[in-house]
């Protein structure tokens, strides 16, 4: 079983109300995550401009082993900002649930599919790997989720993020959803679990058991509201249940987490 960690401490983690990092701090944290042999660092949102964009450019200049990705709303202007940073991966977040599509975007499913396709093509022209995140997938119609995945796959996307944006999955349902997608597509899956009901770790484990190859985590589980899947907790649980990440030394990882928290001003 080959499971890769996508660390989103610098994007979703930093979105926890009360955390704010400048370019220098983000670069220091990226170096620490790289030393922890994290596969991918979700570095931030270049569309915010200023320090945020600068931080991604600086990270790219470091030539880290970890892949650097940027997070983008589904629009060409945001993606253009990312392209200018020359990241390894451009991630496009696509609202998937009707509540997101109707209430937030005030659009319909057809518009979402067409806009997603345009955004993927535009991002792929830059030569970067493009991944698509299905925002609020856990509250979306599975048929539409599959439709989005097929459309993205046809445009050349090889990995989809299944986001439990508001943290309402439980492990039986997680297993069922990921299994259904895996049974119908050949695409690689990434689980993005939120911890609103205290089940982010167990849901991530369940997703891997169902076939997900990538797991999103943050250091200390920081993130929006009650946070994301906690990296150290996930690694420990994955060691027990999946017999993976045996090479991660808990004390070293804890030390890295402490340093990151120190930089962030968290205790």
């Amino acid at each position: 079983m080959n499971v890769k960690i996508v660390d989103t401490t610098l994007r979703d983690g930093e979105q926890q109300a009360g955390i704010a990092l400048g370019a220098g701090d983000k670069v220091k944290i990226a170096r620490l995550l790289d030393s922890a042999k994290i596969y991918q660092i979700e570095a931030g949102i270049p569309a915010m401009g200023g320090e945020e964009k600068k931080s991604v450019e600086k990270m790219m200049a470091l030539n880290l082993r970890s892949k650097i990705s940027t997070w983008n709303r589904m629009n060409l202007k945001d993606i253009e900002q990312s392209i200018q940073c020359k990241p390894d991966i451009i991630h496009i977040s696509v609202p998937a649930s009707d509540i997101q599509i109707r209430c937030k975007l005030k659009k319909n499913r057809t518009w979402v599919i067409e806009t997603m396709k345009r955004c993927i093509n535009y991002a792929r022209e830059s030569g970067a790997e493009v991944t698509v995140g299905l925002e609020d997938a856990s509250r979306a119609d599975l048929k539409f989720v599959l439709q989005l995945i097929s459309a993205a796959f046809l445009e050349g996307v090889e990995r989809i993020r299944y986001a439990d944006t508001v943290g309402i999955l439980h492990r039986k349902r997680t297993f069922a959803e990921i299994s259904s997608i895996k049974a119908r597509t050949d695409i690689a899956l990434e689980i993005h679990a939120h911890n609103d009901l205290g089940m982010a770790v167990s849901n991530s484990i369940s997703a891997v058991k169902a076939g997900a190859e990538f797991v999103d985590c943050t250091m200390g589980g920081i993130g929006e509201r009650a946070g994301n899947c906690d990296y150290l907790q996930f690694v420990k649980a994955a060691g027990e249940f999946l017999h993976i990440f045996d090479n991660v030394k808990e004390e070293e990882a804890l030390e890295i987490q402490k340093e990151i928290f120190h930089i962030m001003g968290l205790h």
Binding site: Q15, G18, D196, L197, G198, I222, E224, R225, A226
Partner: peptide, 15 residues
């Protein structure tokens, strides 16, 4: 502050 269900910051939003 970010403890699920209880934390006093879980309904603070900024982004």
């Amino acid at each position: 502050d970010n403890k699920p269900v209880l934390g006093k910051s879980i309904f603070k939003y900024e982004s």
